[in-house]
Each structure stands twice: as structure tokens, then as C-alpha cells.
Design a binder for these strands. Sequence first.
DNA 1: CCAATAATTCAACAATTATGGAAATATCGA
DNA 2: TCGATATTTCCATAATTGTTGAATTATTGG
Lengths: 109, 109
Amino acid sequence: MTPEVAVTALGALAQEHRLAAFRLLVQAGAQGMAAGALAEALGIAPSSASFHLAQLTHAGLIQSRRESRSIIYAANYGAMNDLMAYLSENCCQGAPCTVDAGCAAENAA
Amino acid sequence: MTPEVAVTALGALAQEHRLAAFRLLVQAGAQGMAAGALAEALGIAPSSASFHLAQLTHAGLIQSRRESRSIIYAANYGAMNDLMAYLSENCCQGAPCTVDAGCAAENAA
DNA sequence: CCAATAATTCAACAATTATGGAAATATCGA
DNA sequence: TCGATATTTCCATAATTGTTGAATTATTGG
């Protein structure tokens, strides 16, 4: 992952509504959520939701599919995984930035 | 960590020069780097560097100390660790977002 | 105390981002 | 086909962010 891509992904998550949307989509799993349901859950206008979902999509963090009249969004776990790996490699160098406590213990051994 | 804090941290890293600065500081370790050295390494004006370093400081990702005429910045690994943990818990739920491949294998067992 | 060095703060401006209403597009059921 | 539903695109506007030069603050050595 290039720094440019990382910046785009970080920027996509660096906004109240987008972070909340992404969290909802992670919880929703592969089933995903419709744009309208997301807008309502976030308490924002449909056009605003569309704007934010486009940003997340552009960053590769989510995907969409049409299902009848709805457009269903779903989290792209792979992209998030890549971002986490990038941050771990480039921003935690030589530091105990292991996420899993159990792993940290194992790594220390 | 609250979503607000996470958004602030993500936003602090979501900018070309700030992400680069943070990476440099992670590499520099506890010794840190002077503001001027960072500005030169990033190729930006001292006032711009000051602006970005203030953002990173406000987000808690870096710390500063005065050393004679210089102000030395250093990465705050704990804050980064907290951010990684937040993302792992809230944005990777049920997905294989483990950062360490060795850990992932261990976790699967 | 004064000149030099290092950094920040301030001010002005450019650029980007966020917002919601209105119009346009796509799909469905009758 | 038509009306209803779901969403996006467009537009105007507000708010935030990023940039730099100039002025200000802090520190040191002589």
C-alpha cells in the first residue's frame, strides 16, 4: 500500500458519519445495509449519506450492489485489513503496536 | 476510546505531510526530531510544519519537549496503539483483521 | 544586553470538504 | 404505462483545512 492510498483510507474514516457508517457495515456483515437505512441510522439526509458512502467506496473500504430498488452497501474487510497492516508496518515500527493482547504476550516470548 | 477521539486521530494521520511526519517520528524513536529538521525533511515551510505538528499533538499522537532552542517531537506509541485497538475492535468485528500473520495463525488454532 | 537561531502564532487567502433541497435516474407493483 | 419508492447527481452555500510570509516569543552565546 502506498502512502497516498493510506491517506485516502484514513481520510475516509476520519469523519463522524463515515466512521459510524463503516462500523454499522462491519456489524452488518456480508448482508450489508441499504443506503436509506444507513442514512436513517446516521440521522443525515439521503444526499449526505450518498456523498459519504461514495467517499468510502472510492477509498475501497466498502462495496455496493443493487438489490431491487435498494442499493446495498457492505464493508470490504480486505481493504481495512490492508490499512491495518500498513499502519502496523509503517507507524508502529519497533513499538508494541500489536493489537491482540494475547498475541503481544506471545510475541514477547 | 470514543469515536470522537478516533476521528481526531484518523484525521491527524489522513494528510500526506502528517502521515509522513508521523512515520519519520516513529522511525526516530524516543530520541525524536526537531521541528526544523522535520520541516526540511518534509519539504514544507516551518509554519506549515508547525501547523501539522500541532494537529498531531492535539490528537495525542506525538509529544514535544524543548531542548535548548529546538523543540523536539517524538511519537506517542501508546496513542497509536489505542487507535489500532479501537479499529480492530470496532471496524474488524468478526473479520480476520489481525495484523500479525503469526498471530492470526495462532488465533485460528 | 544584543544579535542570532529556532519555532510558533497571526493574518490572508486558496482549496477542499460537508450539507441538504431539488431534479434526475432506476426499479418495482398494479 | 403510471405512480410510488430508493438513491444518486447537481447546485449553492457553509464550514473546515492547508499554505505561506511576516511578526512574535523563547533561548543561547558573546
